[in-house]
């Protein structure tokens, strides 16, 4: 079967229409999980089937797509999804955050500030922030409906009681526009402040769980915390070893079995842009003529 046998962006138009309706509803009710009829996608659950469907519903032939996986453009998940849309939609792709009109992301928000007109699509494994505290879906829906979110703080209480601080480092619960408590997908809590007031549209797709939710542009998003244990956007206390950036989120890379390690920007596009601009970290080498 060739790519021409598929409709534009793989999904048929009726399906895209259905997904767009869910997206619009999600944008109208920020943070609310909208059920949708998730389709089987030609990839396993957990690989971003929700994000791919949202991206497919948003794509137009004029779009430029960027796909990142944990911040990187060149890892398996990012490469396969980018190829998938190159074949089925024939859209332009890019690695540069600022050139993209749609960015599908797995578990990171790009370091570069997003702009109006961009769409950020998150892949979400578990959309329900209350899931592990209250396993009954009927009950969690009721809690969202009646705004009963005390239980979310029980989770943070447990963190402090056990570890001395709020140890939740990713999928850190947020409250959207003073109403719905939302799981921001497993992004590091370092990225949480970037959720709030972003000029870009942020869409969240959970394929297996059949939920879509959204944070419209310039929406107020607050990370939950206690008065005496305020939210801290934490990262590894290092600079990037390749580009020397002090303010970006870092991956720890084990380099040998003698305890050697280096810290590098998880956002590869951000790191490359800095290196091309002449920044060098203490394990890096100057870049000649681009990477």
């Amino acid at each position: 079967m060739t790519a021409q046998d598929y409709n534009f962006a793989y999904l048929d138009e009726q399906t895209k229409r259905m997904i767009r309706r869910a997206i619009l509803k999600g944008i109208a009710v920020p943070g609310y999980q909208v059920p949708f009829a998730s389709r089987e996608m030609p990839m396993p659950y957990g690989w971003g089937t929700g994000g791919v469907q949202v991206t497919a519903a948003c794509l137009t032939p004029d779009d430029t797509l960027k796909v990142i996986d944990q911040g990187a453009d060149d890892t398996t998940n990012a490469v396969s999804i980018r190829k998938f849309f190159q074949r089925t939609a024939g859209v332009a792709v890019t690695e540069a955050t600022l050139d993209a009109t749609i960015i599908q992301t797995r578990h990171r928000i790009p370091e570069a500030a997003l702009t109006e007109g961009q769409i950020l699509v998150y892949q979400v494994p578990i959309p329900e922030p209350l899931r592990f505290l209250e396993p009954r879906e009927t009950e969690t829906r009721k809690m969202h409906e009646l705004e009963e979110y005390g239980l979310m703080h029980v989770k943070l209480y447990e963190d402090i009681a056990r570890h001395g601080t709020i140890a939740t480092a990713y999928a850190y619960p947020v409250k959207v526009e003073g109403r719905y408590v939302m799981d921001p997908s497993p992004i590091p809590k370092f990225d949480n402040p970037k959720l709030s007031g972003s000029p870009a549209i942020q869409l969240f797709g959970a394929g297996r769980e059949q939920r879509i939710y959204a944070v419209p542009p310039y929406t107020h998003v607050v990370s939950l915390d206690f008065e005496d244990h305020p939210f801290v956007a934490s990262k590894a206390p290092h600079d990037c070893d390749l580009c020397g950036a002090a303010e970006s989120y870092l991956d720890e890379v084990i380099t040998d079995d003698q305890g050697g390690r280096m810290f590098v920007c998880s956002d590869t596009d951000f790191c490359r842009t800095r290196r091309e601009a002449g920044h060098v970290g203490h394990l890096g080498v100057p870049v000649q003529g681009g990477v």
């Binding site: 505290l133 009963e148 239980l151 029980v154 209480y157 447990e158 009681a161 206690f226 008065e227 005496d228």
Partner: peptide, 22 residues
Amino acid sequence: RMGVSAGGNVGERLMAIGARHY
């Protein structure tokens, strides 16, 4: 809540009515 510590169990109702000071 069997998966939550005794302190969390007692504190849940307090947090449900808006207590936010650990």
